[in-house]
Design a protein around this nucleic acid. Structure first.
Length: 595
RNA sequence: GCACCAUUAGCUCAGUGGAAAGAGCGUUCGGCCCCGAACCGAAAGGUCAACAGUUCGAUUCUGUUAUGGUGUACCA
């Protein structure tokens, strides 16, 4: 059930019965709630088409509705449909303004027993969502935040709509950085078993260092390679050896990848982000040869400056799109190779209808190349859509990518710690004495993470935004903690009244606004999914919470004398709580019962 | 150079081919006898970067310009 669609059907039918295009009858939420709830612009769009004044058309439609003719086809429900309108009128220059009776909304809202009842449309496509994408041996930093939390939210939104979505972290674990790490390890520990001739794997093989050293190895190696050509060559050589599965390198690589994953998992768990697949670029390694062979067989590859490439430009391109490199001149693979091979692998393993990549906007050219090459090489069926969803960067106040005071990149662990401590301070001041220290810590974690995630998600994903630490740790106004605070307040009331409510009815404008808002949740979810933009849901859930807060301050619930009103309100706040918590869950933000 | 993206209130950001342009923060003012004040209410604050075009109607679509950002074959 979807109110907009239902009413659009009625109006469309009126258009048709008057001899106009049915599609003109689509209605939308009014942007003038003082005038009406819904509005239809069809008469104005049709004015030119039918060479009639728009207001005349609008009047015809309204009269047709009043004549009840359009309801003929709804015999069984016509009684309901005929009298749902509290107002339907044509106004200059040709709007059709529509409002419905409160009983209509009351009937609707009382049918909603759980959040799922708000979602009428269900889809079943299989989607692979590629997000997260951290690199092995690089601690998660602020640059990894957006992919993780936007991706997690899109995954949950899609699942709520019925999609069979598989989230894949797609670790960076196969490119040149691996060669750099191995080179640096070899410099530090030249006598490790992995580097010996005739190395054979053994259960007792281990690493001589822990995660802290591993995390420091890559940046060291990276800067060394920029200073020394020899070092760089060694790293390229090591990369190639690894990709060709030199047994010692391969075993060493497996060990440090495992160590790194273990470390990342903790941070992702803190962020309430989880992946169905912990695959990496390396997972497709068995498909690489097949990929290269396929592309060669198709006759679309050629050699250029020693590299094997495929042309992907088209005549319509405004920009010269360079060929995509499948094999580097030194014989090694690079990210375009693994991305293509990964498509092959995903098709074979999962046969998805769609693969969605969530990465930084800056990779859009790369994905254009990959997608075109994939189509040209026919490595995937036509039905499988490929989509790159780009997101913007978090910049500092100077508009440049965010750096800490000392010029470094802020690690996610540090960011989480800072914001959690701030939340702990706030909570300690307010929360009841009965709360144990352990509970306080747990609540602080949830409140802090909510602030962090909501603070990021409410920006439109495609845009760069200014990261301001002071704003993130401020828990007032349109923030994650505000939302949690309101659920905690509702929870506190329900604890006193019990959750035993009655039929929901509309006793005040604010109650109407809350119900109206809740009933359009599905449209927001659909929009968030279609645009892969969770910020619409952020706005929506904030509006609901804010309306509740207003309602709370102007109406009494516990001490309301009329039992009918009290019970209605108890039901209403229960529903509000369910909706807020459920939307927070779609944003992958955990709620708290008290704070 | 070429291409892409952005430019909306003091700050940070939403939003829309239509009827008065939205929020949070900040500022000013008001509100705890009373269900949790991390709250609520009110006010001030905008020629929606500039110019032109399409349209009955443009902040929204198109073009040009300005400013900022990003990308432009062997990093990912």
């Amino acid at each position: 059930m979807n109110i907009i669609n239902e009413i659009s059907e009625i109006i469309s039918e009126a258009f048709e019965k008057c001899g106009y295009d049915k599609n003109l009858g689509k209605i939308a939420l009014s942007n003038r709630p003082d005038l009406c709830q819904f509005t239809c612009n069809g008469a104005m769009a049709g004015a030119k088409l039918y060479k009639k004044p728009p207001l005349a058309i609008a009047n015809e439609i309204v009269e047709k509705i009043h004549s009840n003719e359009v309801f003929d086809c709804y015999k069984e429900e016509s009684a309901l449909r005929k009298d749902i309108f509290s107002k339907i009128e044509a106004v200059p220059p040709g709007f059709i303004n529509i409002s419905l009776k409160n009983e209509f909304f009351e009937n609707y809202i009382n049918k909603i027993k759980s959040f799922d009842d708000l979602i009428s449309q269900k889809f079943s496509d299989k989607i692979i969502l590629d997000y997260g994408g951290p690199n092995v041996a690089k601690p998660l930093h602020i640059g990894h935040l957006r992919s993780a939390i936007i991706g997690e939210s899109i995954k949950r939104i899609s699942k709520a709509l019925g999609y069979n979505t598989i989230g894949d972290i797609h670790l960076g674990d196969w490119g040149l950085p691996m060669g750099l790490i191995i080179t640096e390890i070899k410099e530090r520990y030249p006598n490790l078993v992995y580097f010996q001739d005739n190395y054979t794997p053994s259960e007792s093989d281990s690493l001589p260092f822990g995660i802290d050293e591993l995390n420091e190895i890559y940046p060291t190696a990276s800067s060394k390679s920029k200073l020394s050509d020899e070092y760089k060559l060694n790293a390229q050589e090591a990369t190639k050896k690894l990709q060709n599965k030199d047994i010692g390198y391969y075993e060493l690589w497996k060990k440090f990848v495992a160590l790194s994953i273990e470390d990342s998992k903790k941070i992702y768990a803190d962020l309430n982000v989880d992946f169905d697949l912990w695959y990496g670029e390396s997972t497709c390694r068995d498909y690489i040869q097949k990929l290269v062979n396929t592309l060669i067989e198709k006759g679309i590859t050629y050699e250029s400056e020693g590299a094997l490439v495929v042309d992907v430009k088209t005549e319509e391109d405004k920009l010269e799109i360079p060929p995509i490199i499948i094999r580097k001149s030194d014989g090694a693979q690079l990210y375009s190779t693994t991305d293509l091979a990964t498509i092959m692998q995903r098709i074979e393993m999962f046969d998805p209808n769609q693969i969605i990549y969530l990465t930084d906007n800056r990779q859009s050219l790369h994905f254009t190349q990959v997608f075109r090459c994939a189509r040209k090489g026919e490595i995937l069926p036509n039905k499988t859509k490929l989509e790159h969803i780009g997101f913007g960067t978090m910049n500092g106040k100077d508009g440049k990518p965010y750096k800490t005071r000392d010029g470094g990149v802020m690690q996610l662990s540090e960011l989480i710690k800072t914001i959690t401590e701030k939340a702990y301070e706030e909570i300690s001041d307010r929360i009841s004495n009965e709360t144990t220290e352990k509970e306080k810590r747990e609540i602080a974690q949830k409140v802090g993470i909510a602030a962090l995630k909501f603070g990021d998600l409410y920006n439109h994903r495609s845009r760069d935004y200014i990261f301001d630490m002071d704003r993130f740790i401020s828990f007032e106004g349109k923030t994650g903690p505000y939302l949690l605070y309101n659920t905690a307040r509702i929870n506190s009331i329900i604890k006193k009244t019990g959750s035993d409510g009655g039929r929901i009815r509309i006793f005040s404008d604010t109650e109407f606004d809350i119900i109206f808002k809740i009933l359009f949740t599905e449209d927001i979810i659909l929009r968030s999914f279609n645009e892969k933009a969770p910020n619409y849901l952020c706005e929506h859930v904030y509006e609901i919470a804010s309306l509740f807060s207003k309602f709370y301050s102007e109406s009494n619930i516990i001490n309301e004398e009329s039992e009918e009103i009290r019970k209605s309100r108890i039901s209403l706040i229960n529903l509000v709580k369910e909706v807020i918590i459920s939307i927070l869950d779609l944003l992958a933000i955990e709620h708290v019962d008290k704070m």
